[in-house]
Design a protein around this nucleic acid. Structure first.
Length: 555
RNA sequence: UGACCGAUGGUGUAACUGGCAACACGUUUGGUUUUGGUCCAAAAGAGUCCAGGUUCGAGCCCUGGUCGGUCAACCA
């Protein structure tokens, strides 16, 4: 631990603690807006906020930033809570910005009384026109100098519902000439006669982000309010409101959000994929959402590990999905039960094996666990299914699998030698005939035969038919939103391949949704949530590393 | 052409705060292996965006550039 490096936020907190700031108290918050499902980018923020608090003996609140009722919904609230819990975090309090509407309203009244806020009758267009540009200062609104009394009266009537949507706004009186656009008399309240998922029809005016977030932080006595880089220019305003109100000085710190290649992360785009049915839903295993990763077979441990590995800094970054895949492989390699399944079956017949006989072989559940993690029975008989890719009529030099005259071991079973093969009318290999060496039985091999390869198989007689969904990256380009035109035109047409007729070994009959396996030599798979005992469905979480395909590409 | 922020191997993050650029992923090579997985061993790969300056010494400090990001929603 002595060589452990602190990220810049840990350094700040360490320093704060040293200086006795906030009496050594650390309170962070995770503030999602309930207008979509959480994605892998949010998990970075979650791990950061909860992790920081935990590391420094503090707590973390969950606070829904629900100030815009038009896009928000309780469905999202529920999914967000589920995802955070699943990731393994517990919040100290469950709060909602809407809990504070009354208090935030009072804050606004306070600012009006101090002459620091005014009701503006301008339309959105007029406000925009007077806003100026980044290089030119803005101009004062003609309503900027209304009296305190008039502002108080108007604001009260806004609340009462006397005005239509957009007819009036409440704005902070800061500085229309500020080089920071956000300080050019930002909107504090707007009128929306919209039903709110929590406050119902109690309110028809809603505070804007800038007049809700910092205030909520302050109300909760948040010490370190951590957000992403794009809020950086909001910080002066964040501080301005807190200062003018004289309330608890929460502090905002920004870090660079997580970007992943071969996917999109904006909630707007994800919502579009869902609404336009490009995916089956928010938890379609190809999505970068937490619910999708869960359904695909990712574990909370692997996601937390990933979030820790990507680090925390203030520079833009794009993380290779390969790192995420590494994290889940590392976890599942240690923990996933090994089983055999054949995705693209072709029949293998052992000519010298007794007709009608079935013997039970034993296979360890996980070689990574001491003692092999127990064993299960694997039936073996004359007819087996093997992977079509494991046989070649004219095998190249380093092909350590089956082909005419070639010898391999069948995992947990016998060594077999290919004697001949048959083809169907279309010219596809339909039967591979082998002989087996009875004395080469796994565990008691006295044959002294050396083989280069080991293959998986499924006993045909006892095979369990299963559906397997092979997932690949959702997009075929690294950064879809940087490409020309609609990002959806860059979706990977092969992001999902459904295999209806795969076979799994007999032991897998009783698989339950969520069960995770390594299908030997193929990858990690997770029983889908829709999987039943009548119809088993497996999602491929991630393939195994495959140095053979690399070898092939070289040739 | 305003303000703010950023720039270190292919990617990401470090560098004890001014002392011979490290770790992880990835890549390559070899070994082990009844998973072409795992594991083990090794290698290649940046001289820190550029130009000046301060200093015995700069990735860290200063000046000026370059490039990238963010900001003109009644979104968050």
């Amino acid at each position: 631990m002595s060589t452990e490096h602190l990220n810049f936020l840990e350094e700040i907190i360490t320093e704060d603690l040293k200086n006795g700031k906030n009496n050594g108290r650390v309170l962070t918050r995770f503030p999602p807006e309930p207008n979509g499902y959480l994605h892998i980018g949010h998990s970075k923020s979650i791990v950061l906020n909860f992790g920081l608090a935990k590391k420094f003996g503090g707590k973390t609140n969950l606070r829904f930033d629900d100030t815009n009722p038009v896009t928000e919904d309780t469905e999202y609230v529920e999914s967000i809570k589920e995802d955070i819990k699943w990731l393994g975090f517990e919040w100290e309090n469950e709060f909602y910005a809407s809990d504070y509407f009354e208090q935030i309203y009072e804050f606004a009244v306070t600012l009006i009384k101090k002459g620091l806020a005014y009701v503006d009758d301008s339309t959105a267009e007029e406000i925009a026109a007077l806003k100026g540009t980044p290089t030119e200062p803005g101009k004062n609104s003609p309503f900027r100098d209304r009296s305190v009394e008039e502002n108080l009266d108007l604001f009260a009537r806004m609340r009462k519902g006397e005005f239509k949507d957009g007819e009036k706004t409440l704005r902070a009186k800061v500085d229309m000439a500020s080089p920071n656009m956000l300080l050019r008399d930002p909107l504090m309240y707007r009128i929306k006669h919209v039903h709110h998922h929590r406050t119902g029809d109690k309110w028809c005016i809603y505070p804007m982000y800038d007049f809700a977030h910092g205030q909520s932080d302050s109300i909760e006595n948040i010490t370190h309010s951590i957000c992403t880089l794009e809020f950086e220019s909001h910080r002066p305003l964040y501080n301005w409101f807190i200062e003018q109100l004289g309330i608890f000085p929460s502090h905002q710190y920004e870090f660079a959000r997580l970007n992943l290649n071969y996917t999109v992360m904006s909630k707007r785009k994800l919502l579009q994929l869902v609404n336009e049915k490009h995916v089956s839903g928010w938890d379609d295993p190809r999505m970068p959402t937490i619910s999708a990763l869960r359904r695909r077979g990712y574990t909370p441990e692997s996601i937390r590990d990933f979030c820790e590995r990507v680090g925390i800094a203030r520079r833009e970054n794009v993380i290779d999905v390969g790192l995420l895949e590494f994290c889940i492989r590392e976890d599942l390699n240690k923990n996933a039960t090994r089983r055999m399944a054949v995705l693209n079956p072709v029949k293998l017949i052992i000519d010298n094996y007794e007709e009608g006989k079935t013997e039970m072989l034993s296979g360890e559940n996980n070689p990574e666990v001491e003692g092999g993690g127990g064993t299960r029975d694997i039936p073996f008989s004359k007819e087996l299914w093997i992977e079509r890719e494991d046989f070649m009529e004219e095998p190249p030099k380093k092909f350590f699998r089956l082909g005419p005259g070639l010898t391999v071991r069948l995992k947990h079973a016998y060594i077999v030698k290919c004697e001949s093969y048959k083809k169907d009318a279309e010219g596809n290999v339909s039967e591979i005939h082998c002989i087996y060496y009875p004395e080469s039985k796994s565990g008691s091999d006295t044959s002294d035969i050396k083989v280069k390869g080991t293959m998986h198989f499924v006993c045909a007689k006892n095979a369990v038919p299963v559906q397997v969904n092979l997932y690949d990256r959702l997009f075929s380009v690294e950064n879809p939103q940087a490409e020309e035109g609609d990002f959806k035109t860059y979706m990977n047409p092969e992001s999902l391949k459904v295999i209806e007729n795969a076979y799994a070994e007999a032991d897998m009959k009783n698989t339950k949704p969520g069960d995770k396996f390594q299908f030997i030599r193929l990858g990690y798979f997770c029983a889908d949530k829709d999987s039943t005992s009548e119809k088993l469905i497996f999602n491929r979480t991630v393939t195994l590393k495959d140095s053979w395909s690399k070898e092939q590409k070289k040739a």
